[in-house]
Design a binder for these strands. Structure first.
Lengths: 231, 231
DNA sequence: CAGATGAGCCTTACGTCGTAAGGCAAATCG
DNA sequence: CGATTTGCCTTACGACGTAAGGCTCATCTG
């Protein structure tokens, strides 16, 4: 560690940076006021001079990832200037996804927050602009935002995602059930080899992510054209 | 309350039923070992004779909702016997949705569980059977399951859902931001009237749910037919 | 019938968490 | 120079989940 006068003074930014590092390394469960303070070389109550409390800390983490996502997505769209709406949105969402892969805790945190982080509006504005530019009415664009759901933020939010070691147990258990569940058994047998690349959660691979994205894009394109001829 | 010999003896089922009632009424945060025990007229530690702990209690709740969903969905599909795969899946998912509307805490609980509830396999088997019957290969059916995500369980899993009172504050805040976010402002203005029926979370209305469902169904139908002619 | 067995519930206690209240020392300002 | 503010610490409280063990019965055994 670098020599320091007395001690680097605490600050909201320094606390958030350390918190992010802690959570990246050890997961959300490790993020405790006392633990974060310890990592900062300070006592727990000192954090309250820079953060309004635990909830405020989580809000700060969320704010930070959203800023990271927005920056990455805006950059991606800038790089693709001139492309059609599909490829621009695609690049946006895939850029967001790379941020999520850096912060595996982010999906759960984002979807557990009781309040909407203000920064999210700016992000959605960019998506909306792309959609409107692509010829979508606000009505369909609105529905598109809902349809994208968490895909817009770069993660598929699989409902169930057993982690690492438990996968084996789950598979064994599934093998037992397979005879009572013929279709599931057959599907797993047919797709087993494809079980590579589990990036974010169970089977939430890049491939599935992009497949769903294209499904939605295709559908939206049709909805747009249909409403154009109808009305 | 009915007269009872001494006291109704505790049991796993009785504990789970009381826990469900408690959570339905006061939300997940109210579900505490001590509180649940109190509702059962018992001390906290007594629960441990029937449940392996807090996690086991949550597992039990999950097991219960999944059973409820499976029953509702199977019933719905039985009622629609003879229909095509789209309407049968639709009815399945909408039946699951009515269960979710009864238990607003279920989406968050389901997606926060660290392990896959075994009961879910039986539910997916039913969906798979419908897809296969509809002419889908296991490959596309697999992707379809991923694409449905939480829709299959009856909820859209909106990323952000401010509750009741906070909506007003959020709208006010959004009005302030609107000038910096022209598209968002315009969209909200255009869609404001449509902000009825917030059933599960923010804007996760029945309409949005079904719109997304049809988007995916359309896309899947194309994917199926395309792969049939290709290969 | 007496005594042993064990199920069902309770009491007490520990370690963890978030955080309220207030103290003390160094930096800043009049 | 003394007064005030700032930044951090100490202590303490009331939640939480749960480990360990005690008490009170119904039931079974001989």
């Amino acid at each position: 560690m670098a020599a320091r006068k007395r001690r680097e003074p605490l600050s909201r930014d320094r606390a958030l940076a350390t918190a992010t590092a802690l959570v990246d390394a050890e997961g959300m469960a490790a993020l405790t006021m006392r633990r974060l303070a310890a990592d900062l070389g300070v006592e727990a109550m000192s954090l309250y001079h820079h953060l309004p409390g635990k909830e405020g800390l989580l809000d700060g983490l969320v704010e930070a990832v959203i800023a990271e996502i927005t920056a990455a997505a805006d950059q991606a769209e800038t790089d693709a200037a001139g492309g059609d709406w599909r490829t621009r949105l695609r690049l946006r969402f895939l850029a967001a996804r790379t941020v999520m892969l850096r912060h595996p805790w982010a999906p759960a945190l984002l979807s557990s927050r009781p309040t909407i982080p203000p920064g999210i509006y700016g992000y959605y504005e960019g998506i909306l602009a792309t959609l409107v530019d692509g010829g979508f009415s606000y009505r369909i664009a609105h529905r598109a935002l809902h349809a994208f759901g968490s895909l817009a933020l770069g993660f598929a939010q699989e409902v169930f995602k057993p982690a690492g070691e438990e996968v084996d147990a789950a598979e064994a258990e599934l093998a037992v059930l397979a005879e009572q569940l013929p279709h599931l058994g057959a599907m797993v047998a047919a797709e087993m080899h494809a079980a590579t690349d589990p990036t974010l959660g169970w089977c939430d691979s890049q491939t599935e992510f992009e497949f769903t994205l294209d499904l939605l894009f295709d559908g939206l394109e049709q909805a747009r054209d249909r409403s154009a001829t109808d009305g």
